[in-house]
Design a protein around this nucleic acid. Structure first.
Length: 244
DNA sequence: AGTAGTGTTCGGCC
DNA sequence: TGGCCGAACACTAC
């Protein structure tokens, strides 16, 4: 479910509720009071990386799916809703990890230029942020939401392989041109992820993630947990260059 | 049947 | 003060 592109799919799927009033709300969440939302009109749906934002005139509901979150639109679900919003023309049901109320203007909280799926995505800003953290492992850099908002473990794995960069490389040691390529490919891959996911063929396009063998025939892939985020990386020692 | 995981936050401990 | 670590969350797929 998570990773930025999935949030974009969700946003497109609920487009029909934009401008509609909530006539009933509920759920098991204790993080917000669903009754607050009744009789309020959704002004917009937005996403920032893995955050799904339901906007109202004076506040915003922030939904984060974490690892296991799910949503149901106009369909019954097996699990009890953490939050459901009912409109005249249908309903959304969230079974998710984290729900928060945001009362500040979104522009004060979110750096839209960091969101790889956003129209405001700024590769130069990402390059500068990487430059400021030369000792960060590149595998951690890709998972850092302030730099690459929306990137998760799959995107990280695939982009590192595409750019032939070893996950344990130090950001400051990777040549500038290679870093630019990495930044560029992260966005390109995220949009391919979106198209593949929509077409239900996403997993077929994994080149290294959850794979056994190097696609170039260099034998078994390495699988290791590194860095601050302690997430698995599948990689080929021969294809991917280590910069230290 | 058991385990690892498309993720983040929080509290405790050095 | 801060960085590191494990737990918690709560469900599915292999």
């Amino acid at each position: 479910m998570p990773e930025g592109p999935s949030m974009v799919i969700l946003k497109q799927a609920v487009e029909g509720f934009k401008g509609k009033k909530i006539i009933e709300a509920g759920g098991t969440t204790t993080q917000v009071d669903p009754l607050l939302f009744v009789n309020h009109t959704v002004t917009d749906f937005k996403t920032w990386g893995k955050h799904f934002l339901i906007c109202f005139k004076k506040f915003t509901i922030r939904i984060h799916f974490l690892l296991y979150g799910k949503y149901f639109i106009n369909e019954p679900s097996k699990s009890p809703a953490k939050l459901f919003l009912r409109f005249k023309n249908g309903e959304i049901h969230f079974s998710v990890g984290s729900i928060q109320l945001i009362e500040e203007p979104l522009d004060e909280i979110y750096d839209w230029s960091a969101d790889v799926m956003s129209d405001d995505w700024d590769p130069a800003a990402a390059a500068q942020k990487l430059k400021d953290k030369p000792k960060l492992l590149i595998c951690d850099a890709l998972m850092t939401q302030d730099i690459f908002s929306g990137v998760g473990n799959i995107i990280k794995n695939e982009v590192l392989y595409r750019c032939k960069v070893h996950p344990e490389s130090l950001t400051g040691a990777v040549p500038k041109a290679r870093l630019s390529k990495l930044i560029k490919e992260t966005r390109i891959y995220s949009f391919q992820f979106l198209e593949w996911k929509k077409a239900n063929v996403f997993a077929k396009h994994w080149i290294v993630y959850k794979q056994d063998m190097c696609p170039k025939g260099h034998g078994p892939l390495q699988v290791k947990v590194h860095g601050r985020f302690k997430r698995r990386t599948y990689y080929c020692e021969r294809c991917q260059q280590l910069f230290k």
